[in-house]
């Protein structure tokens, strides 16, 4: 049986007396406990150092408290209350009623809003990841890699409003894309007006806009793969396809995981692009997503309780999907 890490039997493990004190979690504490024999003055110095450390940390902790913890608690409070948004003394607790309303018969939150959100995120990730992988693979074999990376990164530094409006004009009945279709003898398509094409049309734009960051990360990942693997594969007579599937892709997994996670979370939280391109999530509810619905509930309808409950449901969805992705990638790692 292989010795466990930290086993005293291992030659590299220090004797118990020299190891830092362990808490119940088994993790070593950063500051070893002082034995009773340590002079009082030394303890005072240590205490003062701790106080100073916390003082240095205070601005950051305060920032997190004000902008993260308090809003989170307030959102939790709102999710369990009814509030119109005008008067803080008018917050009335309603228990789980908001969650029940969200999933009541006839409510549009589960279908189509949450479904649209998942489709939007999934579609964006698939398109952006596949596109980025192909482009990164090509860019990695080109000269002037920096130039190409910068070129593909440009959509990311453009504001969402500009991107959304440009694509909106291109999708219009007399726009560029329909002009090309007409030029090929094909009839015009009502991209953003037809409920069947509206969501895919926006997904394409989101994927296009987020491909740049994915390319950047994937090219960095590709560069980090040691060349010896490729040399060995070539010596063994492996073809390009085999090298890509058996060497490049497995060794790129950490970068892929990162891209996958961040793009999925961004897709689930997306709001601005849809707001610019289809306004209220139309036609009908064809492009309505959870973040847009939350905004409408809170700021247009004055129903902050429903908005808070929707935010928590979305948070839960994001947490579950993220955990699922992590688990899948880790399992693949273990299999590898």
């Amino acid at each position: 049986m292989a010795p466990a890490v930290g086993d005293p039997a291992l030659p590299s493990a220090p004797p118990p007396a020299q190891r830092p004190a362990l808490r119940r979690t088994g993790r070593p504490t950063s500051v070893p406990r002082l034995s009773p024999g340590v002079p009082r003055a030394s303890r005072a110095i240590r205490r003062r150092q701790t106080v100073i450390a916390y003082l240095f940390l205070a601005p950051t902790l305060l920032f997190f408290l004000v902008f993260l913890v308090l809003p989170l608690l307030f959102a939790a409070l709102l999710a369990l209350s009814r509030w119109t948004g005008f008067d803080l003394s008018d917050i009335r607790p309603v228990g789980m009623a908001n969650f029940a309303d969200l999933f009541a018969h006839g409510s549009t939150f589960l279908t189509p809003i949450l479904t649209n959100t998942l489709l939007y995120a999934f579609g964006t990730v698939v398109l952006a990841l596949c596109g980025a992988l192909v482009i990164a693979h090509c860019v990695n074999r080109l000269r002037f890699r920096g130039f190409w990376r910068t070129l593909y990164f440009l959509p990311l530094v453009t504001t969402v409003v500009a991107v959304g409006n440009v694509w909106k004009y291109m999708y219009e009945p007399g726009g560029l894309i329909n002009g090309v279709l007409n030029g090929l003898g094909l009839p015009s398509l009502a991209f953003l007006q037809d409920p069947d094409t509206a969501l895919p049309s926006v997904i394409v734009v989101q994927a296009w806009a987020s491909t740049g960051s994915a390319i950047l990360i994937l090219t960095a990942g590709l560069t980090a793969i040691p060349g010896v693997y490729y040399e060995a594969a070539e010596l063994d007579g492996a073809g390009d396809r085999t090298i890509f599937w058996r060497i490049t892709l497995p060794l790129l997994r950490p970068s892929l995981l990162f891209v996958c996670l961040t793009q999925f979370i961004a897709g689930l939280q997306s709001f601005a692009l849809i707001n610019v391109m289809t306004g209220d999530g139309g036609p009908g509810d064809a492009t309505n997503v959870a973040a847009l619905e939350m905004y409408q509930q809170a700021f247009r309808y004055g129903d902050w309780g429903i908005a808070g409950a929707a935010a928590f449901v979305l948070f839960l969805v994001i947490a579950v999907i993220t955990a699922l992705q992590l688990w899948l990638f880790r399992r693949k790692d273990e299999e590898a």
Partner: peptide
């Protein structure tokens, strides 16, 4: 807003 969405569902021929 609900009225608007349902009118649009009719306009698009979806419903």
């Amino acid at each position: 807003t609900l009225l608007r969405k349902n009118i649009e569902e009719v306009w698009t021929g979806r419903t």
